[in-house]
């Protein structure tokens, strides 16, 4: 069947099997491997992408069900060469160790800050509670999101600041 959806602002149409999961559509069909594929059981949350602005576990959605909707993946976070404040925050506050949970964490954080620009720590922890960091780096993930909340305009990179 043909599915058409908007991925990171670009409309794409592909011929796929109805049983193709969204995570594999993004990774295999479109080659957008920034979205990670983890537990396959909607527990770990590394496969989270935004569908119409809402975080969704893409291992538990069909590409067919997502047709007609807008998908945003980690590849669509930066604006050209400028990182999203959430990405910048993960750099500034060391929000990743192995990096496996990072795409899902960042997109969930983006959706949270779009809805609630100045969340308290409990709200941040609740928002990411459906996601697992096996490095257990939650403290720095929370700090990264707090950094992004405190710097809502896309921050210049460190090099630009010091240049």
């Amino acid at each position: 069947m043909h599915v058409t959806m908007t991925v990171n602002g670009t409309e794409v149409t592909r011929n796929v099997e109805p049983r193709l999961l969204l995570v594999h559509f993004l990774r295999e069909t479109l080659g957008l491997t920034g979205t990670h594929w983890g537990c396959d059981t909607s527990n770990c949350g590394t496969c989270v992408v935004l569908v119409d602005g809402e975080p969704v576990k893409s291992c538990t959605a069909l590409a067919a069900m997502t047709a007609g909707h807008e998908v945003r993946t980690v590849e669509g976070m930066a604006d050209g060469g400028t990182l999203d404040p959430v990405q910048q925050g993960f750099m500034e506050a060391h929000g990743l160790q192995c990096g496996f949970c990072t795409p899902g964490m960042m997109l969930t954080a983006r959706a949270l800050l779009d809805r609630e620009p100045d969340p308290d720590e409990a709200t941040i922890r609740e928002a990411i509670s459906g996601q697992i960091c096996r490095c257990t780096g939650y403290a720095t993930i929370v700090r990264s999101i707090q950094w992004a909340a405190a710097h809502p305009a896309a921050a210049p990179s460190e090099q630009e600041v010091t240049a």
Partner: peptide
């Protein structure tokens, strides 16, 4: 019930 992301669906 589940977690916030699952609750979106």
């Amino acid at each position: 019930i589940a977690d916030p992301v699952v609750r979106n669906r």
